[in-house]
Design a binder for these strands. Sequence first.
DNA 1: CAGGGGAGTT
DNA 2: AACTCCC
Length: 624
Amino acid sequence: MQPSKRNTAPTRNDGRLVIHFDYDCFYASVFEAENPALKSLPLAVQQKQIIVTCNYEARRRGLHKLQLVRDAKRMCPEVIIVLGEDISRFRDASKELYGFLRDFSWNGKVERLGFDEVWMDVTDMVDYNMELLNSNDLAHSFFQLDRSEPTHGFSFDASASAGHTFPNVSMIANTSATRVNGGLGLRLRLGSHLAMYLRHQLEQEKGYTSTVGISTTKLISKLVGGLNKPKGQTTLLPPYQMNTEGGPESNVMTFIDSHEIGKIPGIGFKLAQKLREHVLERAPAFDDGLVYGGTRERVSVRDVRTKKDMCPELLEKLLIGPGSPHGIGYRIWCLLHGVDESEVKQARPVPRQISIEDSYIRLDTIDEILKELKMLSRSLIARMRLDLTDDEDYDIPLLSNDNDAVSKFHDARCNTVNRKWLAHPRTLRLTTRPRQPPNPDGTRTRSFKRISHSVPMPTFVLALTDSVEALAERLVHETLIPMFRKLHPEKAGWNLSLVNVAVTNMAETAGESRTADGRDIGKMFKLQEDVLKDFTIDDYEGLLSDGQAKVSSSKSAYSAVDTGAETNSLEDLRHPAQYQTVVDGAEWDDEEDGVDTGLVCQSCGALVPSFAILAHQRFHALGD
DNA sequence: CAGGGGAGTT
DNA sequence: AACTCCC
């Protein structure tokens, strides 16, 4: 980057419309939805000795999240406390609400974070409805929820936004003004009405209230939603563009600048501490303590952004460390300016990993280990069957002319095992957290370091006809105990504070293109976005020297990837012509099968794991 | 590491 | 395999 452009703010791209949902006090709401009588009473959810969350009746009486049960009872003796250590009901409710919201989406870009947050990219819905507006009568508008059904939707007043705004002023209807910036003001307004409609649906149909933010990125929609909790929604008003000479201040900058640095999603504990240390020029006292030796401890986004010599390169130097991605300096630089190009990800059909863990005060005998591994294995296999299998029935209607299939359908119906794997894990991992041996002086250093060992997934676990119990037994003795010996070769002397058993590295089996909701189409979209992203990044470097004219080049990139030729060359990039994809078989009979999906080198025939392809290419380049 | 997850990167 | 981030 050129020295003169060091402090160039990243360019905003506000072409999207993103809504962020956060269900109000989710765990408590799950119990209230099951038993509505609880709604009018103070209710708290307990895990171990902690109130993990409580409803607003309880908060009115002084209770709060992460409070000791004892303190909560003292403060509010009437509080109703329910146990929430079994999280399955929360997981189920979360999936149901997620599915409910996703059914409104046109593009499938609906992403969940944890159990209680969802982003929706509704750009296509909003832009479609922008075209339907009658600019002479915005107050009587209709939002169409289905492109092929003009009457399916809701009426709304497009001359004002729904819910709260930041800044907190009512948006005065001004048609000529709203058309600047590609109509951003008006588009946000439509987004706010769609958000309001979806919140009402969520409450009416499912009984859950939510707090919502509306903006153009994941970052800003999530942050701005936090302004009106609970049961509120907030839209960040334009102008969004950075301040130019004499122009108005960007509301994005105004909004994000005052946030504590550690409150920005993507800036976690470690990064926040490093940034605070740099700004304060000394070690910060605590995570978010306010005062240290009488001096100011709070470090805001503005403090970091305006610190002397601040630039992407400095951030990179400051923040690079083990586990942190390269390019983090530029990413954080963008976050400091409220810029976040990350996409709302499409729904994934199956999870990337499933893990079960438990923590212990003391775990130091092999008998206890055996018992715990058995428990964890049972849970894990049960979860695998729940989350990685599908009912075979779904395929039958497609073959309904086939008599065999029809009778098979009935067989399957009567059979308790009529499921099949949507994906099977290729890797099994055992993780432990050893407790530190005591120091010479008797004190104990607390360590939360984990160690792990992975092996190819033993395929017998996938036999759906065997009982969970029998499979767990076999898994422990044949696989997990040997893995444990590898992690802890000593006969004794260890003491564990945590054990985790996980399956990862999922291989999707049959039926990847089964349904019309289009995972294949999803992949094409993703491919295009990747190209667009790469193009935009290169483009960004090239354009830095003249600062402007971002949008038009992004658009030309988009039309370029629309052609078949471009798509093919993209394939070539991802799978160099020299390599052929190894198709991972759907069989898992009993061969201790191919562990890693990779590519076969067409030069030497070697099976090369994906991560080693570049190295392998270099090998040939040097050798030849 | 509240707890018991989950997603990503090098 | 270890680390960082999110809830």
